[in-house]
Amino acid sequence: MRLDLLAALNAERAARRPCVLVTDLAAGTQRLVHAHEIAADPLAGALENQIHLGKSGLVHQDGRDWFLSVQIPPSRLIAIGAVHISQALAPIAKLIDLDIVIVDPRTAFASLERFPDVPLIAEWPEVALPPLGLDRFTAMVALCHDPRIDDPALAAALASECFYIGALGSRKTHAKRLERLRGQGFGDAELAKIHAPIGLDIGAVSPAEIAVSIIGELVSARRQKPLRAAAEVAA
């Protein structure tokens, strides 16, 4: 592998842009295909398929074996609310290679004492979210219980490609939330993307248990695999 290709690949990863390193295994030659170059590439179909799967793989085409090393950005979790549940989410996220960022304009909550090792942005979502860039490798959970903070964050997530959106609150709270978001012009199909009540239905009570149920739901969204029970009902 040429060092300049390796450096370019690492730069794409740092910028959270997907790319694929294509190796002709017989010849040993390589090229780096950037996200915007995929459609025009001779291997476009295979490249798109592997990126969609989020997996590297070997393909046989035009009488040659090509290895597609797929680089997709690490999944990221933006937690709105420097609350107790977020304190439990942070270490679990780290274990499953999920980059967590916590956003909360209330400085009493968003303090280094409460979150010593976690990227923390003590700003309103309107300020904090645009520079983060909500892409399809990003998940968002709204945990504030305060519509002034949660609503604008959810609106931004709904307008993006976030792979998972969850919002804390009872069915009643969520019904009111949906009403407010409808008032902002969101349709039912969009609003259905919000997982609420948040998390898998495992009877979670403590903040740490709720964090586990949220992470479980998020992993299932990330792996794009329906729950076994849901799949059986569908079949």
Binding site: L25, S56, G57, L58, S69
Partner: peptide, 17 residues
């Protein structure tokens, strides 16, 4: 040198890539 898993069969412990 970089070593990369390019193909697996059965219960290989590390994924392709």
């Amino acid at each position: 040198a970089i070593a990369t898993v390019v193909e697996t069969w059965g219960s290989a412990p590390r994924p392709v890539g």
